[in-house]
Design a protein around this nucleic acid. Structure first.
Length: 479
RNA sequence: GGUCUCGUAGUAUAACGGUUAGUACAUCGGGUUUUCAUCCCGACAACGCGGGUUCGACUCCCGCCGAGAUCACCA
């Protein structure tokens, strides 16, 4: 079978963590099966339409590396890919249903319908519109909604994630097909489009599971083949048991880009939240995911979103890229994450800084806080020296003397390179008979005045002889 | 209320009738010449409850409990 999947968002805002998975899984399935994925914009609700939302969606997909085979921008044989431009197609299908007696124009005003609904609620019986079908229905024309005429019966189907499904006639109703504004409802439009576009796998959130029998009825009435149904469980908010949504402060996917999260890590995390290949592998490239993806290993219960693990994975990916693809590959991704003071420095220097600091980054934006002393003179803070747990037992004059010895030792060095620096530091330890904790803490703080920094010899090497000695001298003078 | 779904440590998950219930994140200890991190070692910690079926049940069946979804001219 030629697999065709689709991601069909409505342009009502940004894509967030709670709903990207319905783009990721169709992408993985399509590529795993050598098929294709369609991007379709479901913009039939004019009131909820948000200007620019389509671009936001495309941007998110691009960032994650989820390119679509058909859809906006790239086009394709099933164009147009905006539902608002396919009105005629829906109306054509609607006429077929009218002709076969499976749809009727419903002139009942909404207030009346609400009244029926309330009556049922009062009596605590389920509200089914088909029990209130108007006796006389007019010709269908613009301004009148079109309803499906349900044929209540049992349905059975298979959901690839949820398993065998079975429902009775009580879940089937006369759903609205075309709204009074002439646009189709989701319920109708997606069925027509999926069939027209040859979609084989309908993958969407579990919230659509309950309406599937109504869709089944529609496929039947239109004489269309059923696609394969794949219900994706929800991603849960960090607290509570509700699905993660914008109300819980679900951040947009691309907000993480600005926070210094790598798309590789994001994809890795999200794909593994609710799916795994059964092995103990934790780090997956996109290619790994494509190769190993399978529907039968999608989890059927909701998964809680855990940002801590995302951040851990991001750290793993930062190191993986540096170790496997080199400093330059990682450096390319750091633009915009450096402190402002770094602007005056060239790429080579920044890459050197990155090379000694990268293994302590959780996100790229950590760069801002962690590297400033490589680009500007740190502010001398003698309290930080004096209160350091390794230094507070030494007197100020001792510290001053130690710094002077360090300066004289290091200034005599011919080669300012990490191995000779380490050698010199070791000799200094012997000569001063100090513990590493004391001597190294002193030097480290004098160089950076930062709460933490890379290995001493590496910091010295990158800072350079002139700057290093100047900073050590400055502190010696300040004490 | 009707219908449907789900239920292994704090979190994400492995197990597909027989294991001391595995792994990762988090947490807590320890190690790698300073700090922070990486890396390594270790610890803590789970089968919702009750019945069956079976020599044997996390795994199969039933009931209960708990959680969620859905019942729009929104998707």
């Amino acid at each position: 079978m030629n697999v065709v999947t689709r991601f069909a968002p409505s342009p009502t805002g940004y894509i967030h963590i709670g709903n990207v998975r319905s783009a990721i899984y169709p992408y993985l399935l399509a590529h795993n099966k050598n098929g294709k994925m369609i991007l379709r914009i479901e913009d039939t609700d004019r009131e909820r339409y948000v200007e620019g939302a389509t671009e936001l969606i495309e941007d998110t997909l691009n960032w994650l590396g989820l390119e679509w085979d058909e859809g906006p921008i790239v086009g394709g044989p099933n164009a147009p890919y905006f539902q608002s431009e396919r009105k005629e197609i829906y109306h054509e299908y609607a006429r077929k249903l009218i002709e076969s007696g499976r749809a009727y124009a419903d002139p009942t005003p909404p207030e009346k319908i609400n009244q029926y609904r309330e009556e049922c609620n009062k009596k605590k019986i389920p509200f089914l519109y088909r029990n209130y079908r108007p006796e006389k229905t007019p010709e269908w024309e613009p301004g009148i909604p079109l309803r499906f005429k349900a044929d209540p019966k049992n349905y059975e189907w298979v959901d690839e994630v949820m398993g065998d499904m079975k429902t009775g006639p009580e879940v089937l109703d006369d759903i609205i097909l075309i709204k009074k504004d002439g646009f189709p409802t989701y319920n109708f439009a997606h069925i027509v489009d999926d069939a027209e576009m040859g979609v084989t796998h309908v993958m969407r959130g579990v919230e659509y599971l309950s309406s599937t029998p109504n869709y089944l009825a529609l496929y039947e009435a239109l004489n269309l083949p059923r696609p394969i149904f794949v219900s994706l469980p929800h991603i849960l908010a960090p607290t509570g048991n509700k699905k993660l949504g914008k109300r819980d402060g679900a951040k947009s996917v691309t907000e993480y880009r600005d926070d210094g999260v790598l798309p590789e890590a994001m994809l890795n995390y999200l794909a593994n939240l609710g799916w795994n290949d059964g092995t103990e592998q934790e780090i997956y490239t996109k290619e790994d995911l494509i190769k190993k993806f399978s529907l039968d290993r999608i989890q059927n219960s909701g998964a809680r979103y855990d940002e801590t693990k995302l951040l851990w994975l991001n750290g793993q990916w930062i190191r993986k890229i540096f170790d496997e693809q080199g400093a330059e590959a990682l450096y390319c991704k750091t633009a915009g994450f450096w402190p402002e003071v770094a602007d005056n420095y060239d790429d080579n220097y920044k890459m050197e800084v990155l090379s000694i600091i990268y293994d302590r980054l959780k996100t790229l934006s950590d760069l801002r806080e962690m590297t400033s002393y490589f680009f500007e003179e740190p502010k001398i803070d003698t309290d930080m020296l004096i209160n350091n747990k390794f230094l507070k037992k030494s007197s100020e004059s001792e510290l001053k003397e130690l710094l002077e010895k360090t300066v004289s030792k290091l200034s005599s060095l011919e080669s300012w390179e990490k191995d000779s620096l380490q050698l010199a530091l070791n000799e200094l330890l012997e000569e001063t008979s100090k513990k590493p904790a004391e001597l190294f803490s002193l030097i480290r703080i004098a160089l950076s005045y930062a709460p933490f920094s890379p290995a001493l010899n590496l910091t010295l090497e990158v800072l350079g002889k002139e700057v290093s000695l100047a900073r050590l001298n400055a502190t010696a003078r300040a004490i």
